[in-house]
């Protein structure tokens, strides 16, 4: 296979970045089209593997898949190029939008609209939880863990990082104990 240039990687992920609207999962069909079908940099199976692993490691899913795909093409430099390409369009979009917003914050209609959007955001958060629920909280152990953490969060100002570490360790410990019992 001909060597893929870094510029080409940047270009493709820049294009994908522009089209990435509405959450990370949208990157899958885009990669399918650009990388698997049109350019054949990846196979279907590789893409599915990357997706599975992306969910289990730190970072945002779309960014992780992009870095895996970039790595496949040109190792570490390819991964770096892919993520930079992916975030360039949104970086500038955000800066421009932030500037526009600053100029309109005194406008009464903009203020009213953002008052409403604040409630939209609350609704979006709750809907996100609803969609995660059946895959997340579905056994005695997960129910107990969920309610203990929720109680902890409502009563104390705990850092999310601490919550993540504690629940990871608890789950690991719980599973190890279960394994021993069954053995």
């Amino acid at each position: 296979m001909q060597k893929i240039t870094l510029f080409e990687i940047y270009k493709i992920f820049f294009l994908i970045g522009i089209q990435l609207l509405g959450g990370g999962y949208v990157i899958l069909p885009l990669l399918q089209k650009y990388l698997v079908e049109e350019r054949k940099w990846l196979t279907e199976e590789e893409l599915i593997d990357y997706f599975a692993v992306s969910q289990c490691i730190p970072g945002i899913i779309a960014g992780n898949i992009a870095m895996f795909s970039g790595y496949k093409a040109r190792k570490s430099l390819g991964a770096l190029t892919a993520i930079l390409g992916l975030i360039t369009p949104s970086f500038f979009a955000i800066i421009i939008l932030a500037n526009i917003l600053i100029n309109f914050t005194d406008n009464i209609y903009v203020q009213k609209a953002f008052w409403g959007i604040r409630i939209s955001v609350i609704v979006l958060i709750l809907i996100t939880v609803k969609e995660m629920w059946s895959k997340s909280v579905n056994s005695k152990f997960t129910y107990i863990l969920f309610f203990i953490i929720l109680l902890l969060l409502i009563l104390l100002p705990v850092s999310p990082a601490i919550i993540i570490i504690i629940s990871a360790l608890t789950a690991l410990l719980y599973s190890k104990i279960g394994e021993k019992k069954n053995a």
Binding site: S136, L145, L153, P160, I163, S167, A168, T170
Partner: peptide, 20 residues
Amino acid sequence: YIFKGLRPASCALLISIGLK
């Protein structure tokens, strides 16, 4: 195994923010 614990934690984190 770790993910079994992380998912309920994410739910709790998000719900607590939504409620607040």
